[in-house]
Design a protein around this nucleic acid. Sequence first.
DNA 1: ACAAGTCGGTTGTTTTTACAACGAAAAGAG
DNA 2: CTCTTTTCGTTGTAAAAACAACCGACTTGT
Lengths: 219, 219
Amino acid sequence: MKKFIPILKRTQLFAAVSEEEISSMLSCLNARLRTYKKGEYVLRQGEHLDDITVLVDGELHIQRDDYWGNRAIVDRIAVGEMFGEAYIAPESGALLNDVIAVEDSTVMFFDVKRIITVCSSACRFHSMVVQNLFFAISEKNRKLVQKLGYISKRSTREKLMSYLSEEAKRNNSSSFIIPFNRQQLADFLSVDRSAMSNELCKMRDEGLLEFNKNAFKLL
Amino acid sequence: MKKFIPILKRTQLFAAVSEEEISSMLSCLNARLRTYKKGEYVLRQGEHLDDITVLVDGELHIQRDDYWGNRAIVDRIAVGEMFGEAYIAPESGALLNDVIAVEDSTVMFFDVKRIITVCSSACRFHSMVVQNLFFAISEKNRKLVQKLGYISKRSTREKLMSYLSEEAKRNNSSSFIIPFNRQQLADFLSVDRSAMSNELCKMRDEGLLEFNKNAFKLL
DNA sequence: ACAAGTCGGTTGTTTTTACAACGAAAAGAG
DNA sequence: CTCTTTTCGTTGTAAAAACAACCGACTTGT
């Protein structure tokens, strides 16, 4: 547990909280650790969750497969990011999506009730975490709206362009590496892989961009 | 201001807070009231927002128009619902969407910093509002994921079916009234209106559903 | 009551996407 | 190192959506 404290310190949830303070909060928040093999389910659609979780190692996808086998990747969780924040409320109901480890991963679980119930004395740094949690959920919210922006575009080309230019902006560079392979990108943008691959190559041939595997450059 | 207190009492933000307590919190949270005519912009893409807002009368759409005139309706805000919760963090940046009044509307603005900064003494009921705000943002998050589920469906028919069956479930009835006209529904689901209208009629002819204007019945 | 505007359905054409199938290249396993 | 699996581009075809245009019914404002 201890060895992940430096990682926790760099997360949004524990921003501006010192390692000593984090250490003392771990038990206060009933922190638990669990590891998952690549391909293993962390949570399944239909389950209930009473925790906020932070990924401290590996990579996760939040996704959903429908009856016809179409997979939709709702979100990608990188080290230091949270998930489960949509199920904070006691009456939230069951999970709508699966959470799956796309790499060997380690997840830390925190009792959500202990975070959002403001304890008057116990932890001096609690209020900072409360505020951090607000900012984190709020930002997640904004990211979801942004993703809605991508996939509400009518054509595959527009979806690709809005996603790729956002990534370029985020990296402050026209060259960047995306965290998806082709199939995953297609599942993320909700389009057919081969059609998307086709469109990407057309865009390359038209001189709009260059790419080599996951490395892209907008022109 | 006073006359909206009974409405505020029924909102998620002020759940379990008495009218007297709300009344005393209004100044504490620097509440302000503003009215808008039908069609008027409440907020515009690119503006900055330092408040949490609650709609106390009318109806709003959160939407975005692109260069080609295509409108995407991201969300619909009904009386008692909040918006702006995605911009709580000071570094949130500019609004990504427009907020427009689709009916004559009245909006109440609250200073967000005063909500999330836990004041040790001032308001006894502050902590309840903090918790309510957590639940509200969290639920909004879940709703966004749900909407992602609708529009990530590949075909117009699937988009319609997932949206309509969710509405049926939400109303606990196979008969229900949707809050959109055809153009708005198309903008909400990110499809072409005429194609959607066509598909709706096909589905009706196949015996999947019945409808009359905004009243639908799943069969 | 009348004119102007909105709304929803319909149709035909063009463009785009989904789907299926295949092969080459790269990555991974033993 | 070789065999297997995965990944990605490519192609052709069938299906679906976008687009444009039109009409009739219904609203709204004057």
